[in-house]
Design a protein around this nucleic acid. Structure first.
Lengths: 128, 128
DNA sequence: ACGTGAATTGACTTTTACGTAAACGCCATG
DNA sequence: CATGGCGTTTACGTAAAAGTCAATTCACGT
């Protein structure tokens, strides 16, 4: 496990711009350390980026991603906070399950659409 | 099956604004008929709205949603078009499968986070 | 005929998530 | 030593997806 990653290394690995990474830093999603003024990203930052991009692909906003990331962190020490956190996690899971239903339905419709296309090709006597 | 739905009926059903529906019309995603100036949405428009919102929840842009909707329509008559369409459908399915992986991973991490919270509660001697 | 509520159009505004450009520091290499 | 490459900050720009507001315009019930 490497200790530090430069910003351009990560932009290449994840195919995002430096602007994007700096933006995520401004938003408090990652906290690279500094050597002088240059940013050094640690494995934990790298993993966070992975999580951010996952959230992004799922259509979550930066704020929602921030919330989700909070949930991955060390659980709080106080009972009320813990219960609240669990409730929030439940809510997010609800959203994700909704997304999963949406996804399966969309996939099913695409399957159906493809079938229609294939049938049509067969009708036209195309060798598949 | 009702023949027509008014714009406000649909805004209530789907919890979106009239502005949003008109925007979707401008974008050519739905084509309600007109009686004078007022829009009359048919069941097919209603179903399209359902599909649009599904796409939106999955983080697809309007353009991507437009593409997907094209795929649901009658398959084209020409062989080249059909093959192209099938290729596009395959691509979209790829995207959706990526989203599904993202989703499962996120759900898994949330499960893990919740477990940590519950464990912590048990440590604190809270009666769950 | 008249007021009231629902719908319409059009213009302007807002938010999000970056893009882009300018201007500069640091340093290794030819 | 200057050139390229990578890094920085600050600031302004922008596209997408609506929200908001103003000014009508119907449709109707009385």
């Amino acid at each position: 496990m490497r200790e530090y990653y430069s910003i351009t290394e990560l932009t290449r690995e994840f195919d995002i711009s430096t602007r994007t990474l700096r933006f995520y830093e401004d938003e408090g999603l990652v906290q690279p350390v500094r050597r002088g003024r240059t940013r050094l990203f640690r494995p934990t930052d790298r993993h966070l980026i992975r999580q951010i991009l996952r959230g992004r692909r799922l259509g979550f906003s930066i704020n929602e991603i921030r919330e989700i990331i909070q949930m991955y962190k060390e659980p709080p020490g106080e009972v009320g906070q813990l219960k609240l956190m669990i409730k929030r996690i439940e809510e997010k899971r609800g959203e994700l399950r909704q997304k999963r239903r949406d996804l399966e339905e969309t996939l099913a419709e695409l399957d159906h659409a493809e079938e229609s296309c294939v049938e049509r090709l067969v009708e036209l006597g195309v060798n598949t």
